[in-house]
Design a protein around this nucleic acid. Structure first.
Lengths: 199, 199
DNA sequence: CGACTTCCATACGCTGCCGTACGGTTTTTC
DNA sequence: GAAAAACCGTACGGCAGCGTATGGAAGTCG
């Protein structure tokens, strides 16, 4: 998030550019990663950019690396290990739906959109894999046999993605406030009921 | 999907341009709606375009109208009225997941991505509203009280969107063939079990 | 067949972005 | 504190796409 528009206190690093590029991706897609506009937003010029990077592609790559780095270190660990799988899932949903309701949405949304770019596709593939694997573990621990766990994990994740989509583009279609909490509970019921090994 | 590359038999109509624009949107997003490339793909030149349209925005608008037209007339009616709500939902899922697995995905995916454009946002809002309303009816008929019906409809639709997303960008994460059928059944179980008025 | 409308091709200028060249300024190092 | 390194500003050339202008070709109607 890196407060954009700091008054150019010191000089810039490659990381600053990568973060700015991520910001741009979030609310403009890959196409918004344009050197000159970014330079303007950072209060600098292309001269800076082409010193740190060989070109636009290098910036995109760096931004993707930075994204994977962040998402790896942050998101899943925030849930912690405490509680039953159901409770962890509840925490996860609360966090993600709240996040989706606030800002312009998670970055993967924008990235999924232009998965035409090979580097983007690869990064998205990796992150998606990690997340679904995490969810599969959760459902397995909840008592689902492997196949069922995988299916429920998939439904949970596709539901998350779709939710994020709607939050960004048709926010009016989603419940707010207490209704949102009810909705999360309803989804949890649907996801956790039945399908366990020993009922 | 409107066989592109017909050998320029006769002259072009505005609809031809709109369809070509929709094709472009499907696999390149709104940014791919560029007059000169489209002209090349249609085997004509800008001269034609600027006779039929006032400019790029007009083309985008026309394409969106065409999309709404198609999706209104086609998709929901294909399900028909026969069978229980559960069976209709099964048909719907079968159709949509199969469609997502084949081509480059439904157009709304690309459109959701750049919902920054006001006309796009409006069109997406309308279509989303219609679809969710349809699903709400389905769950209501299945026996869910209104609030529950709305929540399940939402989960179903967000699940659909996320599924389409993954199908386009991380197809490897989704089940195929018989597993896909199992998955649909699993999702149906999750969506239809419990939550009815009179259990 | 000729006038008249409809439709398309070509040529042009404009803008936004990429990438390069190079001189200048700041910071580091000794 | 001066040379070296790191960093940035500015000016340029190039390309792609938008939109305009204008001359024709292809259909239509008397």
């Amino acid at each position: 998030m890196a407060d954009r528009k700091r008054p150019r206190t010191s000089r810039l690093s490659a990381r600053d550019w990568a973060d700015a590029a991520l910001d741009a991706i979030r609310d403009g897609g890959l196409a918004a990663v344009a050197v000159e506009p970014l330079a303007a937003r950072l209060g600098t010029t292309k001269g800076s950019f082409y010193w740190h990077f060989s070109g636009r592609d290098a910036l995109v790559t760096a931004a993707l690396e930075r994204w994977e780095e962040r998402e790896t270190e942050a998101v899943i660990l925030e849930i912690g290990e405490a509680g039953t799988p159901g409770e962890r899932l509840r925490r996860l949903f609360r966090i993600t739906t709240a996040a989706a309701a606030r800002e312009s949405g998670p970055i993967e949304l924008a990235l999924l959109a232009d998965a035409g770019h090979p580097a983007v596709a690869a990064a998205v593939r990796r992150v998606t894999g990690r997340r679904i694997a995490y969810l599969v573990d959760l459902f397995a621990e909840h008592g689902c046999p492997p196949a069922e766990a995988r299916q429920r994990a998939l439904l949970a994740y596709t539901g998350y993605l779709g939710h994020a989509q709607l939050a960004r583009s048709v926010p009016g279609a989603l419940p707010r406030d207490e209704e949102a909490a009810d909705y999360v509970e309803s989804v949890l019921r649907a996801l956790l009921s039945g399908g366990r090994r020993e009922p």
